[in-house]
Amino acid sequence: MTAKASILKILVTGANGQLGRELMEWVTDTMVIVGVARDQLDITSARQCRDVIEFHRPDVVIHCAAYTAVDKAETEPDEAYRVNEQGTRNIAEAAAAFEAKFCYISTDYVFDGTSSSPYLEQDQTNPLTVYGKSKLAGERAVQSIVERYFIVRTSWVYGQYGNNFVKTMLKLAGERDRLTVVSDQIGSPTYTYDLAAFLIQLVQTEHYGIYHASNTGSCSWYQFAEAIFEESEHKVKVEPCTTAEFPRPASRPANSVMAHGAIMANGLQDLRPWREALRHYLKNGE
C-alpha cells in the first residue's frame, strides 16, 4: 500500500488582485490554494496576519497584496510604506513563526532604468519612485525575517483580471482610430497566467533567492500597443511619443528589461515569449 502524497497548502494574500485571482485558479490534486483578500486580512495589522497564518497553517505564503498606485504613492509615501514595507514585514513574520515558505512579488521599479543591458538579479538597486523604494523596503524586510524566501520581480503585468495596459488599449480601440503611445520606455510584458504558473512551479522547490520573471523578449509600450492591435485585428494608427511629452508624477524606468539568470541557473521552466503570451490572452483570457 503506497503512502498518500501530502497536499501542499498555499495561502495567497491580495487574492482579489490581478495576480492573486489568477493564482486562485491553479488548484490541482496535489495542492490547495487559500486566498485572503483585503476585507479578510489587513496586512498592516500584525495581529491579523498572525491569526490568519495560524488558522490556515499554510506550507507556502505567496504575498501579492501591495500598494501599487505608482503615481499616487508620490503624494502618499506613508501609506505606500505602511502597506509595502510594514505590511510585508507583518505577514513575513507570521509566515516565519509557522515555518512557511514565503514568496514576495516585487517589481522592476527597484531599478532606476538607466542600464543599457537587461538587469541581473544581483545588480545594484536604485529605485527613483516612492513605489519602487517601498517595494525594495519590502524585499529587505523579507530577507531579514524569512530563511526560506523567494523574491520575484516582475514587470508590465496584464491578464484577465483587474485593469491593465492591454485592456486599456482594447477599450480605446473601440473609441478611437488613432493613439499616441510612449516609445522610449522598454520592458517585458508579463501575462498573469504565465506568471502564476511559474510561481506555482517555483514555490514547490527549495531554490530560494531573488528571481526575475516576465515573459521573454522585450518591446516598448509603443511596440506593445501595435502588437495588441495587430493580434486583435483592430485598425488603429499608433504614433510614438517620448516620455517627456507625456509627464507623470512618478518617473518610469527607461529600461525595465530583466535577465532571467536565476530561472536558468536553477533549471526552472522560463516564461514563453511575450507576443506568444499576448496571443493566448487575446484568444482565451479577455
Rank of each mutant, 00 (worst) to 15 (best):
Y191I: 07
L199T: 00
P189C: 05
S251Q: 13
F246Q: 13
M264G: 15
I210G: 03
I210F: 03
Y208N: 10
G209V: 04
Y191F: 15
P247F: 09
P240S: 05
S220G: 07
V238F: 03
H207Q: 13
H234I: 13
T242I: 11
Q204P: 10
M264A: 12
A213E: 03
E206I: 09
A250K: 05
E245T: 15
S188H: 03
N255D: 06
T190K: 01
Y191S: 02
I210N: 02
I200C: 14
E230I: 12
I263R: 09
D194Y: 00
M258I: 09
T190F: 01
W221E: 04
S232V: 12
W221T: 04
L199S: 04
A227E: 03
P247V: 05
M264H: 11
L202H: 05
N215L: 05
Y211F: 08
T205S: 15
Q204L: 05
D194M: 01
T242W: 09
I210T: 08
Y208Q: 09
Y193L: 10
Y193E: 08
H260V: 02
P253R: 00
I263S: 04
K235T: 13
Y211E: 05
F229M: 14
T190N: 06
T216W: 10
G217F: 01
Y208H: 14
L199M: 09
A213N: 10
H207N: 15
A265T: 07
I210Q: 01
N255K: 03
P253T: 10
C241D: 12
G209E: 04
I263E: 00
T216Q: 15
Q201E: 14
T242M: 09
P189M: 04
Q204D: 09
V257Q: 10
A250H: 12
C219I: 00
S220L: 01
A196Y: 02
Q223C: 10
R252D: 08
P240I: 06
